[in-house]
């Protein structure tokens, strides 16, 4: 990496993930999810549907919730990415995690990273407490959960909003 010969099939990109800078060379068709999981070992981001519907792969790219399954790694060259592993750096999010545990916000836990990142995106922009609960629900339409029926997730969000 960092050499002058750039292989077009394996472009080099630089990005910040959870506050750390990385320079990597990846296959041109590698998705951001693959980059995070296979190249950087950040397996908290899960792969479910791979068509941008289920939300298990949600990460924040420059603050915006993004399906990392649909995003090519080369598209995030220069961007700042926050994954579930990076949420611990924000003390204001600690209550959200606790509420998920205590309110039954997960069962198998496969959707949980995506749920937390999607909600954290609102909290970090200080939007959660001012939004109507309908608007919060709308925001989470793209984060499916097959286990909980969403009631526990809703209770956890209600707690985090307070």
């Amino acid at each position: 990496m960092g050499g002058v010969d750039v292989d077009p099939a394996w472009p080099s990109i630089a990005l910040t993930v959870n506050g750390r800078r990385h320079e990597v060379s990846v296959p041109a068709d590698r998705r951001l999810a693959g980059l995070l999981r296979d190249d950087l070992g950040l397996t908290g981001t899960k792969l479910g549907c791979e068509v941008g519907v289920c939300g298990t792969c949600t990460v924040l790219v420059d603050g915006l919730p993004t399906s990392s399954c649909l995003t090519l790694a080369v598209q995030v060259d220069g961007a700042s990415v926050l994954t579930v592993e990076g949420l611990a750096a924000f003390p204001e999010l600690a209550e959200l995690g606790r509420a998920f545990v205590e309110e039954g916000g997960f069962q198998c836990g496969f959707c949980t990273s995506g749920q937390l990142v999607a909600i954290a995106g609102l909290m970090l922009e200080q939007r959660l407490s001012s939004m109507t609960s309908e608007a919060v629900t709308e925001h989470l339409h793209g984060n499916l959960c097959r286990c909980t029926g969403y009631y526990g997730i809703q209770r956890a969000i209600d707690r985090a909003r307070r």
Binding site: L42, T45, G97, G109
Partner: peptide, 8 residues
């Protein structure tokens, strides 16, 4: 469960 460390 809530840190992304649960491995599948």
């Amino acid at each position: 469960w809530v840190s992304g460390r649960r491995r599948f």
